[in-house]
Design a protein around this nucleic acid. Structure first.
Lengths: 217, 217
DNA sequence: ATCTATTGACTGACCGATCAGTCAGGGCTT
DNA sequence: AAGCCCTGACTGATCGGTCAGTCAATAGAT
């Protein structure tokens, strides 16, 4: 009767134990950072032995890379799915493109903190994080860059890339959620819920992007 | 005769040894982060014994705090000096305010990397960094927030604080200097020198700030 | 002026704890 | 019996921090 369960050993298929490790590792790395996280504490969190981590992933570096890759796959998939639904000739095309770029990183899933962590690594020039960004995020970034060029209407690619860079920095500040804005505003909060905050964020970067694309002397 | 050299022992006067330690510590923390930096490596870098670090600063935490405080004093002084020279009723008041805010953090002094490091700590929610930001950067931030409210023309304080938060995130992306924008643009670089890059950054956040202050439906 | 006492800057040796990583072997399924 | 998952016990290295003690300079007393 043929092969009912081919048992394909896909590159990214995950046993329950592997998933539990990756989940715990993402939380641990997000909490303490790469250097601050400990393999022992991480194993305890996952409910497995420390040796199992090395058995499956070989080293701390490789485990970290696996965490980033898993998270980036989810974020990129959602980003591209949203981008595909954008009408690039609509009046609010720019808003839609940025929404597609930002929303998946702000989602209720714990992904935001892990995303913030690698972004922070980028800011401080961490080589490992830079290599992972090149591998995991650059391809999708280039696709968004194309959409950005179109939505901005014929701006040169270097400027579009700069706008992209600026926008991601703004996103990082929002992900922080450190309550500083509320503190500086003496307790007054500008945006109660996350959806409204996302709108504000998009509004800001759209304004910034347009001022780059069409500079008034 | 008389006192030729009063030898005032000011609160923050620093002996050559202390200055050497702080300098080496800032470089080490900027390179490796708080957890990644080692007291031994740090002492070697400063050319002193590891014990001396503990003798002067007590602990790694306190040394880190001393580094952040020293850097923030320089940055805040330059920021306030530039802000004082801004004409808040001029047409380009907003540009000037943001320039005063950004330029000191992008200066040729190595301060940018140390500044980026604490900003990264903010993004990932590090408690020690958050406390230091509250202590060292919030007072100056409030002053800039007042200037921002004026220059933006009657926007509510919560929104101004949000604009401030967004803008600092954009600054962080620029400080990164990771070459990603150039990479995504296939090697084409948008801004050759730092001054032009600062202009672009200011242009972006001014555009964003205005779109928040005066939203078009 | 000279001896003594005290202090501050500084170091080498050392501490327990923790680090990432290794390895031989025990189940458990096929 | 063969192969994969998984673990406990372990290693050398490194971690931040402590401690006794050296050395030079200053202060006070005679």
């Amino acid at each position: 009767m043929g092969m009912a369960l081919p048992k394909v050993k896909a590159a990214d298929d995950i046993t329950p134990a592997l998933a539990k490790i990756l989940e715990a590792a993402e939380a641990e790395f997000a909490d303490k950072g790469f250097d601050g996280a400990g393999m022992k504490a991480l194993a305890l969190r996952a409910g497995v032995s420390q040796s199992l981590l090395h058995y499956h992933f070989g080293s701390k570096d490789q485990l970290y890379a696996a965490v980033i890759r898993a998270r980036s796959r989810k974020i990129n998939a959602e980003r591209l799915e949203r981008l595909a639904a954008v009408d690039l000739v609509a009046a609010d095309a720019l808003h839609q493109v940025f929404s597609a770029l930002f929303a998946p990183a702000l989602g209720p899933s714990g992904g935001g903190r892990a995303y913030a962590r690698i972004f922070a690594g980028l800011i401080v020039g961490n080589e490992m994080d830079q290599a992972l960004v090149r591998e995991c995020y650059d391809p999708t970034a280039k696709i968004f860059l194309n959409a950005l060029e179109t939505a901005l209407g014929g701006v040169d690619r270097a400027s579009a890339a700069q706008v992209y860079q600026f926008s991601l920095g703004t996103l990082a500040a929002v992900i922080a959620k450190d309550g500083r804005a509320e503190r500086l505003a003496d307790g007054k909060t500008a945006q109660p819920d996350d959806a409204a905050l996302l709108d504000r964020l998009v509004q800001f970067v759209v304004g910034g992007a347009r001022s780059i694309a069409a500079p008034q002397t």
